[in-house]
């Protein structure tokens, strides 16, 4: 059953076509990877799904076009982790994670706004406040940042910061998580940790769409992949068919070493880009 459906999606910005007539179906509970070289349109696709860019075509969730949902309803169902991890103010980790509950807060004229402005509008004991607190706590436990909750977000290491931002996204308790390169700046241990976390979210019933550059991680963790190149879908489907040597050569312009690793009863593929086919280069 498809949860998220993209039909005939095209994005033009400043007279430049960034995505061309893209169709995509993402199943509920799936860990779906978006891969492709720099400038292929991966981030653009995520932003279009999040309604952050003007586009033509349809993006629907459970058969309902997202453009028809209110911003609030959309924010409750889709959570987004951007590539930009700058934070202007050094707020605490706990306050950062709590921002993920914004889609559930009351309108300001019902007093919540003044509560946020410091009049204490949110009373303990009401159901929403309890749900918020539980979601925030679970998100921090899942990402193992509970012990960091009082720390300032700007004092965290890169790996801690990535987990704190992920906790902020988990706190939304959305149906679909869209993460744009969540492991880009992380060491191998944290890359695996973040990917395992996303995998666990899928097992818990959420659907995850993740932009990745690391093809081995994509092959190891994703259920299905979409390979983009210059705004066009080159291949989509199971890992084995998308990450074929011919695709790697034509899209990424690299010759890769593709091997297999037996892990229990599962066989995983690893892909090591080895030589690049630069025009005039020495590679074969």
């Amino acid at each position: 059953m498809s949860l998220l459906k993209v039909e005939a999606l095209s994005v033009d910005i400043g007279g430049k076509r960034l995505l061309e007539n893209l169709d995509l179906e993402i199943m509920a509970g799936e860990l779906f990877g978006l891969i492709g070289p720099n400038g292929a349109g991966k981030s653009t696709l995520v932003k279009a799904i999040m309604q952050l860019l003007p586009y033509s075509g349809t993006v629907s969730l459970d058969g309902q076009p997202l453009a028809q949902l209110s911003a609030r309803a959309r924010a409750q169902r889709l959570a987004y982790l951007s590539q930009d991890d700058r934070l202007q103010w050094p707020i605490s980790v706990q306050n950062l994670v709590a921002l993920g509950r914004h889609p559930y807060r009351g309108s300001w004229w019902r007093g919540a706004g003044l509560g946020s402005a410091g009049l204490g509008g949110r009373k303990g004991g009401n159901a929403q406040a309890q749900a918020d607190e539980r979601a925030i706590e679970q998100a921090m436990q899942a990402t193992d940042i509970w012990s960091l909750r009082e720390r300032r977000a700007d004092e965290l290491s890169g790996g801690e910061r990535a987990r704190a931002r992920l906790a902020r996204v988990l706190a939304v308790e959305a149906d679909v998580l869209l993460a744009d390169e969540p492991v880009a700046a992380l060491d191998p241990m944290h890359q695996l940790r973040v990917m395992e976390l996303l995998r666990a979210r899928c097992q818990a019933g959420q659907t995850v769409v993740v932009v990745l550059h690391d093809l081995t991680l994509a092959s190891r963790f994703c259920d299905r992949l979409l390979l983009l190149d210059q705004g066009v879908a080159v291949a989509s489907g199971p890992v084995e068919t998308v990450l074929s040597p011919s695709h790697l050569a034509s899209v990424y312009s690299v010759q890769a070493i593709i091997g297999e690793h037996q892990d229990g009863d599962q066989v995983h593929r690893y892909i090591v880009p080895w030589t690049c086919d630069r025009p005039g280069g020495t590679s074969t």
């Binding site: 952050l52 959570a79 987004y80 982790l81 951007s82 700058r86 934070l87 950062l96 921002l99 939304v172």
Partner: peptide, 10 residues
């Protein structure tokens, strides 16, 4: 504080 894109997504 999260930036314009993530704020809009919320």
């Amino acid at each position: 504080a999260l930036g314009e894109a993530e704020a809009t997504s919320l």
